[in-house]
Write a protein that binds this DNA or RNA. Structure first.
Lengths: 118, 118
DNA sequence: TATACTAGTATACTTGAGGATACCAACTTT
DNA sequence: AAAGTTGGTATCCTCAAGTATACTAGTATA
């Protein structure tokens, strides 16, 4: 059995997938938007804006477009009067649920720790 | 059994822990630094800088300080000549492993999907 | 003596993410 | 006809995150 050393090069290889993920979910809003869509299953622009507290129309619109490009979210126009727009997580977007859950759980524990101290 | 409706207010409650977590891990580098520290168990400043590709001394120093403040990373000065500095994940920092794993796994699957397309 | 290494600090600078505000089209309601 | 609703755009602006570059103390090594 050969001896293995940990190297920056090997480390970078392990780090790459994490970097890729961070690239896609970067920014203040994308994770929050996905979380909200997972909560509601489907959602109008207005309801999203109310639920992702603090976000402006401009940012919400921009972030939704980027999430669409990456096929994490889909936008459906329904021919009613007036037109209804429905945002929804795609099946692929569903694959990020583990990330959301991990973030959620950590946040819950973190809050317990912080409160326990004060 | 009472009927339950999903509301922006209830949604915000569910979203709060996620927001808390995002606040702490925000930025381009913190998750990467933690990932690298988990890879090596312990690590010098130099090795960290080589492994977190692209980071500058200033950013690495700054981010490490913030991670220390949040008790996710510890810095040990060892009285050798020259002085050795050892960075390490704290036990509390270890609790973020699930997040790192989720990000890693998603990145791996994402890469498969992207490559499969080209 | 001169060069090199570790672990950073100091300073100046850039840039783009995000915020604030106003506005718009298409439609409905009163 | 006027006001309200949804689902956004269009501009302008700010600030902090991040970059670039140089430099330092203390030690070791050639």
């Amino acid at each position: 059995m050969e001896k293995r050393y940990k190297t920056p090069k090997e480390c970078l290889g392990k780090l790459m997938p994490v970097r890729d993920t961070l690239d896609i979910f970067q920014g203040k809003w994308k994770i929050q938007i996905i979380s909200v869509l997972m909560y509601y299953d489907e959602c109008s622009f207005k309801l999203l804006k109310e639920s992702v507290k603090g976000i402006t129309s401009k940012m919400l619109s921009k972030e939704l477009k980027e999430l669409e490009v990456n096929q994490l979210v889909e936008r459906e126009v329904i021919d009613t009067r007036p037109v209804t727009i429905r945002y929804r997580i795609t099946p692929y977007g569903e694959s990020s649920r583990d990330i959301i859950i991990a973030l959620y759980n950590w946040g819950v524990e973190h809050r317990k720790k912080i409160i326990g101290k004060e």
